[in-house]
């Protein structure tokens, strides 16, 4: 099923930039050698200014901010992606189911309404606090926050598409409900779902940063942007701006890249994007 037109990638600048940035960051985090060991501080060079030796400077413990910023991508990015994937794995099938006309579907939507009445970030933090300070709970938290969004999106797409003429045509040729869902409705909802996935990833980065900021999920000397911002927050007032600034910048770049991907994916996958 030819869903993506690869040639169009060349024309879709935003999408390419976004994808390349994320890819580069991931590769750098996992593969490339870093100027200084991000996990071994140099106690002699604490709070050094950014310069030729320590490109982004060092923090109060002597960690090289540059190396740690890159290294943090090893944690934050995969977490965000994993959280997004889990949200989709749960949200998409439930959303498809919820677009049916059964009573359970109706009941489900009402439960969802109640669920979303809570401030989900707080809820997620509460759950994580209760269940323990582990990485997988961050993924759980992201899923809790984002599953409802996917359910609603997929459901509304599915509802709209159900009354599309080609879906009626599929029924007219005898397609089963399952076939209609998987072969007709889902592929045509791919564009908004993919875009939403990218947006979810973007938002997850921020959620992860929030959690590691308050110390959930990581143990020092693991690197994570949120934690780094936290350690640097005290230095900002006294002039050591670089400790918090660069991780913050990293978050900004990653979020922007995901947004570009979302936008580009939307344009690329919509059937009307053919000239």
């Amino acid at each position: 099923m030819n869903v993506v037109r690869w040639g169009a990638l060349r024309q879709n600048v935003g999408l390419t930039v976004g994808l390349v940035t994320i890819a580069v960051l991931l590769l750098a985090a996992f593969l490339s050698p870093l100027p200084h060991n991000p996990l071994a501080p140099n106690a002699a060079a604490t709070l050094a200014h950014p310069g030729s030796r320590y490109w982004f400077g060092t923090d109060t413990s002597g960690f090289d901010v540059f190396s740690r910023t890159i290294r943090a991508a090893r944690l934050d990015l995969p977490l965000a992606l994993l959280g997004t994937i889990v949200s989709m794995l749960i949200g998409v099938p439930v959303g498809l189911f919820a677009s049916g006309r059964s009573r359970t579907a109706e009941a489900l939507m009402r439960c969802l309404d109640v669920f979303q009445a809570f401030p989900l970030l707080i809820l997620a933090l509460a759950i994580v606090a209760l269940t323990g300070n582990q990485l997988r709970n961050i993924v759980l938290a992201i899923a809790i926050i984002n599953v409802p969004t996917f359910i609603r999106l997929v459901r509304s797409q599915s509802l709209t598409l159900r009354s599309a003429r080609f879906v009626e045509a599929a029924r007219a040729i005898g397609a089963s409900e399952r076939r209609v869902l998987l072969r007709h409705i889902l592929p045509n909802a791919a564009a908004p779902i993919t875009a939403q996935a990218a947006l979810t990833a973007a938002q997850s980065i921020v959620v992860i940063a929030a959690m590691t900021f308050i110390g959930i999920g990581i143990t020092p000397p693991q690197a994570s942007w949120g934690a780094m911002i936290q350690t640097g927050s005290a230095q900002v007032a006294t002039g050591g701006w670089w400790v918090s600034f660069f991780p913050g910048l990293a978050i900004l770049i990653v979020v922007a890249s995901f947004n570009l991907i979302a936008d580009g994916a939307q344009r690329l996958l919509s059937p009307t994007s053919r000239g």
């Binding site: 099923m1 869903v3 003429r165 080609f166 045509a169 599929a170 072969r183 007709h184 592929p187």
Partner: peptide, 10 residues
Amino acid sequence: EPYQSLNPRM
């Protein structure tokens, strides 16, 4: 409507 009765992704 011929266009609407065909799945644009097939």
